[in-house]
Structure formats: structure tokens, C-alpha cells
Amino acid sequence: MTLVDTNVLLDLVTDDPKWADWSLSQLEAASLDGPLLINDAVYAELAVRYERIEHLEAFVGGAGLEMTSMPRAALFLAGKVFALYRRAGGSRTGVLPDFFIGAHAAVAQLPLLTRDVRRYRTYFPSLKLIAPTM
């Protein structure tokens, strides 16, 4: 099983000229190891790109994604690491979903397919990341 970060899926939705091919090949490779999972935070972030829930559901189903709920321990951890981020001077808004996603992967011991590694490596050092090498 692999938890998939929103940015990888948005590469497909937007047909990103730089990242769509990489994201598609990584999704295909990860699917060989088991289900591709998304959680509530990823679903909500994807919803921004769709006018109707039916279109989002069609994408989720067509991509072979499975919804999974975030464990309470992950929700707690997300709050704690977000507090650390703020105490360390982090002021960027809109980052809380990243902490939900990272905490979910960490608590459930799932690899995370993402292109945004910096925050995950900083706040979830035990996390197995599937990411581009830069």
C-alpha cells in the first residue's frame, strides 16, 4: 500500500508538462506493491480543482485510488508537528494538510509518494518517501 500526496495527483489532473510523466510512472510502479491510498486531506485538496463531486469521484475511481480514514493518532501527531513548525518560525498558511498527510503515513507506516519532500523529511524523519531525486 502507498499513500499518495496531492501534488502527484494534481500533476495528472493538470497534465503538468514537467511532472505528469514522472507521477504517472511512479503511480503505476506503486500500484504493483498494493493499493494506492488517499485520505480526507488529499481528497479535499483535489476537490478544489473540480466543480462537481461526480467529476472528482470519476478521477479517483479512474486512477484506482482508495479512500482511507486518518487514524486518531495521526490527527494528534499532525497537530503536534504543526505546533513545532509554528514554534520554529513557520508562518506559511495552508500547510496543515501536509502535516495530516505526513502524520497519516507515519502512523500507518505507509510509504508516501510525493514531490514535496522537505517538510516531510524535517517533521517525519522515519517516513519512507517515494520522491524524485534532485
Results as ranks from 00 to 15, higher is better:
Asp11Thr: 00
Pro35Glu: 14
Asp16Ile: 01
Leu27Thr: 04
Leu112Ile: 09
Pro17Ile: 04
Leu46Ile: 01
Glu57Pro: 01
Ala74Cys: 09
Leu112Thr: 05
Thr93Gln: 12
Ala83Gln: 14
Gly79Val: 10
Asp16Gln: 05
Leu36Asn: 02
Arg121Cys: 12
Ala106Ile: 05
Leu77Cys: 00
Ala63Gln: 12
Leu112Gln: 04
Leu32Lys: 14
Thr133Leu: 15
Met1Arg: 08
Met67Cys: 11
Phe124Pro: 00
Tyr50Leu: 00
Leu46Glu: 01
Glu45Ala: 00
His104Ser: 05
Gln26Leu: 06
Leu65Gly: 04
Arg87Ala: 14
Arg49Lys: 11
Trp19Cys: 07
Glu45Val: 03
Arg87Gln: 15
Pro125Cys: 01
Asp98Ser: 01
Leu27Gln: 01
Pro125Met: 08
Asp98Pro: 06
Ala30Lys: 01
Asn7Met: 02
Trp22Gln: 07
Arg119Gly: 10
Leu75Pro: 04
Val42Leu: 10
Glu28Ile: 09
Ser69Thr: 13
Phe99Lys: 02
Thr14Ala: 13
Ala20Arg: 15
Leu32Met: 10
Arg121Thr: 11
Tyr85Pro: 09
Pro17Trp: 04
Ile130Cys: 13
Asp16Asn: 11
Ser91Thr: 12
Arg119Asp: 15
Gln26Ile: 07
Ala29Ser: 14
Phe59Gly: 03
Leu36Ala: 03
Gly62Met: 05
Thr6Cys: 06
Arg52Val: 11
Tyr43Phe: 12
Tyr43Leu: 07
Val95Glu: 12
Phe100Val: 10
Arg115Gly: 06
Ala106Trp: 10
Ala29Tyr: 10
Ala73Arg: 13
Ser91Pro: 06
Ala74His: 03
Arg49Asn: 12
